[in-house]
């Protein structure tokens, strides 16, 4: 058996990213071999609905994890509303309600940085459309640990601030349209 080169995919997105993530999950193959860890900004008081809507189109199981939940391959994890979501060294999630970072809870930087430390060069980090700079620092941490960095092509973004903030800090390994991102991820599964 060929050992997969990567251990996890982590995705951050904000304004405009819901439809991108939704489409991406509809395109990922059923036997996708990695955990997909997603942190999206959401309106604090719109609690329900996001995970249900994402589930509608996803071929993979979508979970809003509880604290200390084990991270499993082939499942999609969405940071729960009003919690920061961290990846821990023992392969579990931990949640926190400490104060918002970059005005957000969940904060994309927190999730990306914690994943960078755990998965190091076996991590794929992706930042999608969004109107602020959350995620840029986290992507730099992924790059520093020699993980693979991908930003959504700003030309295809509803709001290009977020991927552009990443590109100001690091030179991303790939700049891809949403369709190219799913094609790339599906190739990993072969």
């Amino acid at each position: 058996m060929v050992r997969p080169k990567y251990k996890a995919v982590v995705i951050g997105g904000s304004a405009g990213s819901f439809s991108v993530v939704s489409k991406l999950l509809s395109q990922l193959r059923e036997d996708f071999p990695l955990p997909v860890i997603i942190c999206l900004h959401r309106l604090k008081h719109v609690r329900s609905g996001l995970v249900e809507s994402i589930r509608l189109k996803s071929k993979l199981e979508v979970i809003e994890p509880n604290d200390k939940e084990q991270i499993m391959a082939g499942k999609v994890y969405l940071a729960p509303s009003n919690y920061h979501m961290f990846v821990e060294y023992d392969g579990t999630f931990s949640l926190s309600t400490e104060k918002p970072l970059n005005h957000s809870r969940p904060s994309i930087d927190h999730t990306l940085t914690s994943a960078a430390y755990v998965y190091r060069n076996k991590l794929i980090g992706i930042v999608l459309t969004g109107a602020n700079k959350d995620g840029a620092k986290g992507m730099k941490d992924i790059a520093d640990k020699k993980g693979l960095t991908i930003i959504q092509d700003p030309k295809t973004c509803e709001m290009d601030t977020m991927p552009k903030s990443v590109a100001r800090l690091i030179k991303p390994d790939k700049v891809l349209s949403p369709d190219e991102i799913s094609t790339f991820l599906n190739q990993l599964a072969i």
Partner: peptide, 8 residues
């Protein structure tokens, strides 16, 4: 939890 106490 190690990660969070360390960070704070």
């Amino acid at each position: 939890s190690d990660n969070s106490i360390k960070r704070r």
